[in-house]
Amino acid sequence: MDSTQLIAILGSIVLQAAPLIIAVCGETISERAGVINLSMDGSLLLSALAGFVAALLTGSLLLGFLAAAAVGALFAAIVAFGSLHLRQNQVAIGFVLAMLGDSLSAFLGQSYTRLPGPSVPSWHIPLLKDIPVLGPIFFRQDAVVYFALLLVLVTWWFLFRTRAGLELRSAGERPEAAFSRGVAVRKLRYLYAILGGALVGMAGAAYSLSVKIGWAEGHTRGMGWIALAIVIFGGWSPVRGAIGALLFGATKALATLLQRSFPQVALVAFNAIPWLLMIVVLLLVSGKLAAPLLARAPAALRRPLRSLLQAAPPAALGQPLDES
C-alpha cells in the first residue's frame, strides 16, 4: 500500500466517522447537563429516515437536515419531559424510545427502501485542500465532515470556555449548588437535552444523506449504542469523543483491510474487533482499573495520564432535581 492509498483510507475514515462525531457531541452536551439520552439508536434511525425522505420530497438537503434535527429533538424532549417533569427513570424511557424509533423507522420507511435520492455533494475547501497529507484527509470532503469538525471545536469551546458552558456543566455536576446560585437548572437541562437531541438527529441525516446514502431498514442500527459508549470513552469531552469516533472508524477500516490480507482467518473475527474494543476501552476508562494505575504513576505524569484515561461522568447524570 502506498501513501496515496493510506491517505485515501484515512479520508474515508474521517467521512465515515463524521456522523458519529456529530452524535457524540450532541450526547456529550446532553449528558454534561445531566440528561442521559439513551434513545440514540432509535433516534438516529428515525432521523436518518426523516432526513432522507424530507430531502427526497422537497429536493432540499437543508430541509432534510432540519427534519432530522426535529425528530432527534422530539425524542430528546420526550426523555427530558419524562425525567425532569414526570420524574421517571431516564434509562427506561430512553431504552423504550430506542426500540420504538427502530420499529417506527422500519414501518414508515417501508416505501422508501433503497430509493436513489439526493446526497450532500463533496466540496473541497480552497487553499486548505492543498495542505499536504491533511488537505486530502480533512478538507476534500463534504459539508457534513466540515460541520462535524467545526462542531467539535465549537462544543469544546462552549463547554469549557464560556459562562453558559459553565452553567451547563454545573447543571450536570452539582445541580443543587447551581440552583442555589441562580441557575435555572431544569430549563437548562431541557434546553441542552433538546439541543443535543437535535444534533443526534442531524447525525442521522448525515448517514442517510452523506455517508450511507439512501434508506434501508435498520440503516444505522447499532451506531447509537456505539456513540453512547464513545461518549464514555471520550470522558464527556467533545474532543476526546471525536478522537474516539475516529479510532472506532479506524478499527473498522482496519478490520476490512485485514480481512482481505488474511483470508484464512474467520470473517467474524474481524467483525468482532469493534465490540471487543468497546469492552477493553470501557474497562480502561472505568475508575476501577484506571485509579490504581494512576496512583502508581509518577506525579508529573499523573495529570496528562488522567486526562487521557480517566473519565468521571457528570456527578448528577440522570438524577432528578426538585426545584420546588
Partner: peptide, 26 residues
Amino acid sequence: SWIGFWFNIPGVTSDPTEVTSSFLDT
C-alpha cells in the same frame, strides 16, 4: 471481500458501504 450475509445486518455483517470505500481507497 465477503460481508457475511446476503445484505447488510448492522453489527453482524461487514458494512458493504465501508467495504466498497475500502476497495476504492486502495
